[in-house]
Design a protein around this nucleic acid. Structure first.
Length: 687
DNA sequence: CCGGACAGTTTTTTT
DNA sequence: AACTGTCCGG
């Protein structure tokens, strides 16, 4: 945004108070104010390296870093912006003696899930929480700092009778986590928080590096993150920016009301408010304001557009997701002009990752460059995980999950045989490692030197080929790209066989990307960790043009903006998501999700949805309710819970149904039957 | 015990 | 598309 700070922004950015809270609505210049604050501090003599910006998503970290770097003065570039997790990660890695963790591997969510699955055993689905549920409840307990019991009551009320078993599984999970020398994402925060509570040493270690913390999206700070911030407040000055109406991370333990407690937690904080919206036209804000006003909660927000009037938002309904995708891409393609209407004027927002698929397919087919934020990450894809399993066990011989993944690739090795081998491997590794607990004092290389290769080869069940790979990769372990190449050379046949019917060519290209990324790296652990903390998306790795259409989940889109924004899947069952129905707080969070989506748009806002969805669209809007189970829906306010826009006044949007026909490009992904009707019906019969 | 084949289900959101 | 559950032959 190229505008000067307004008076309110300037006051906040130049605050003389030790601690400040800036309450800033959507589009009121939150990020600009943070960047300006950094600028102001530097101009007042603060070392840039002593300013740390903390964000929630990597996207905003990147965004702030980018905007800071655009500043003319090179000193500003030394300001660091990272996520809470990335910051804690670097603290733990760079101060092993303070935090007490030396040898460990970071594991991502899917590894956590696999470990839970292992511990959970073969209980039937439906009779016991899934591995994912267990991980969710466990993580929720840690992030909100409530007991496991409370978390299970809240997240898995149906399984509260099984609490004793669930608790035992979580204990076992922690045990396995310790013996695998794993730290999960929550550990990163918890270790820093716990050390800060326990010892002044941690506090002074951090204070010796940082004087100013600038916290973005403070409404999403969860209790675990507060355990990090709170002890620091007396030695570090805190500048927090947030908006309660944009709190959408409740599932991760954030409480949107907590921003109101900021003054209690940080008693001397000065509060600033930013209300003028510079991003959008008034019509876009009208819909957004209406949405919030419908809530039973009082957000007390009424965004005003400094820019004034513009186009009326559109709301278009289609027969299915393919028509929806096709029409969106049609419009993007039609309006594209390299100089004046670049691809990146377009932002397509989806509620969930998988809802982006048809759009991705359509863009791919027409060879329109795009970037999918929040899509599958390279290191999360199955084939990459398979290949990296070799490197994982080289870097950390205690890595149970890595061993299992590696061994299962071999024909003839299944669950039973793999776990037999893993058991004895871990025993051998443990013997070589006696007395060297996590937090021991030896540097990581020592453990590497003891890698129990000799014993492995003698295991009767170990496939001979597996030993060969390990030995070959072991030789080149300090050249990560070389290690991956070596592993691939040995395993390509196996992988090709396994994935031959599942886009093998695309997967093969991912390996090339991976090797490219690893070029010049000398530490496997560092390489893997860097990309777990700051992952590269598959669509990013390909030599992508800088100008491209952006697809994003709404959660990943916080802080983003674009001239033209499409919000997809705007239909009952999605907003609010059907899984949240029944829990008022969750529904309210869903409202805020939609609010965040709407307020991304600068000039054009297009809402799209499908007529057919799991919840019948008509039953909500038509007066003649036909089925008996609709009794509960007769109440208008309940209908509103099922679809936020059910009662959207007509004046706010231009509506159309079934899209519009286009003379050109009669292509369809969804089958031939979808494109014959050139109907454009504007009217009151829908919505 | 392993793996292939098949059918059915199931997808919130992020670090 | 990926994961689960089940059955069966080697």
């Amino acid at each position: 945004m190229a505008y000067e700070l307004n008076a309110a922004q300037k006051r906040a950015a130049e605050s003389q108070s030790r601690n400040s809270l800036v309450l800033a609505g959507a589009g009121t210049g939150k990020t600009s104010t943070i960047v300006a604050r950094a600028h102001h501090l530097i101009n007042s003599g603060v070392e840039p390296s002593r300013i740390q910006v903390l964000t929630f998503t990597r996207r905003s970290a990147l965004d702030i870093q980018r905007r800071v770097s655009n500043e003319a003065s090179s000193s500003v570039k030394k300001v660091r912006a990272s996520t809470f997790h990335a910051w804690c990660h670097s603290l733990i890695r760079s101060n092993p003696q303070v935090f007490g963790y030396r040898e460990w591997s970071l594991v991502d969510g899917s590894d956590q899930q696999s470990l839970f699955a292992l511990v959970r055993g073969k209980r039937k689905r439906g009779t016991f929480p899934t591995a994912k549920d267990l991980q969710g409840a466990y993580s929720f307990a840690r992030n909100t700092r409530v007991s496991l019991k409370e978390a299970v009551e809240f997240k898995l009320p149906d399984f509260i009778d099984d609490f004793a078993v669930i608790a035992a599984i979580c204990v076992e999970y922690q045990k396995r986590k310790a013996s695998g020398k794993y730290l999960d994402y929550d550990d990163l925060l918890e270790i820093v928080g716990t050390r800060l509570e326990q010892s002044g040493e941690a506090k002074s270690a951090i204070a010796s590096q940082v004087d100013h913390l600038l916290v973005d999206e403070a409404q999403d700070t969860n209790p675990l993150q507060w355990t990090i911030l709170r002890p620091l407040v007396d030695s570090i000055s805190l500048f927090a920016v947030g908006d309660d109406a944009q709190s959408i991370y409740g599932f991760r333990g954030a409480d949107f009301a907590s921003i109101h407690e900021f003054k209690d937690r940080v008693s001397d904080a000065e509060v600033f408010r930013l209300q003028d919206n510079y991003r959008s036209t008034q019509e876009i804000l009208d819909v957004s304001n209406w949405l919030l006003a419908q809530s039973t909660f009082n957000y007390d927000k009424e965004l005003r557009a400094v820019r004034g009037k513009g186009l009326l938002p559109r709301y278009e309904l289609f027969r299915n997701q393919y028509d929806e995708a096709e029409t969106i891409v049609d419009e993007i393609q039609d309006k594209h002009r390299p100089e004046t209407n670049p691809w990146n004027d377009n932002l397509i927002l989806c509620r969930t990752n998988y809802q982006a698929r048809p759009i991705e397919a359509e863009l791919l087919e027409r060879k329109i460059p795009y970037q999918f934020i929040g899509g599958t990450k390279l290191l999360e894809s199955a084939h990459v995980k398979d290949l990296l399993a070799v490197l994982r066990v080289i870097a950390n011989p205690f890595d149970e999950l890595g061993w299992a993944r590696f061994l299962l690739m071999y024909p003839g090795v299944g669950e039973v045989r793999s776990s037999k081998i893993v058991d004895s491997v871990l025993r051998v590794a443990g013997k070589n490692d006696e007395g060297d607990d996590i937090g021991g004092s030896e540097p990581p290389e020592v453990a590497s030197r003891r890698y129990p290769l000799g014993n492995l080869a003698h295991h009767p069940l170990m496939p001979g080929a597996a030993v060969e790979v390990l030995e070959a990769v072991w030789e080149v372990r300090f050249d990560v790209a070389g290690a991956i190449t070596t592993a691939l050379r040995h395993l390509e046949g196996l992988l090709e066989n396994r994935y031959q019917h599942e886009h093998w060519d695309a997967r093969k290209r991912d390996f090339d990307s991976l090797i490219m990324l690893a070029e010049g790296r000398s530490s496997i652990l560092e390489f893997v960790e860097e990309y777990l903390i700051d992952p590269v998306h598959i669509s990013q790795v390909r030599p992508s043009e800088s100008d491209c259409v952006i697809i994003s989940t709404i959660h990943s889109a916080k802080g983003m903006e674009a001239k033209r924004v499409f919000v997809t899947g705007v239909q009952p069952g999605n907003y609010p998501h059907e899984r949240s129905v029944g829990r008022l707080n969750d529904i309210e969070e869903e409202r805020r999700v939609l609010y965040v989506a709407l307020t991304r748009a600068q000039n054009e806002l297009i809402l799209t949805g499908q007529l057919r969805s799991s919840l019948s669209y008509g039953s909500i809007n038509t007066e003649d309710t036909d089925s008996k189970d609709q009794d509960a829906l007769s109440d208008a306010s309940y209908a509103n819970l099922l679809f936020f826009l059910a009662e959207l006044p007509k004046k706010f949007v231009v509506r159309s149904v079934e899209g519009y026909s286009r003379a050109s490009s009669p292509r369809s992904l969804g089958g031939a039957q979808t494109k014959d009707a050139p109907t454009l019906r504007l009217g009151p019969e829908v919505v």
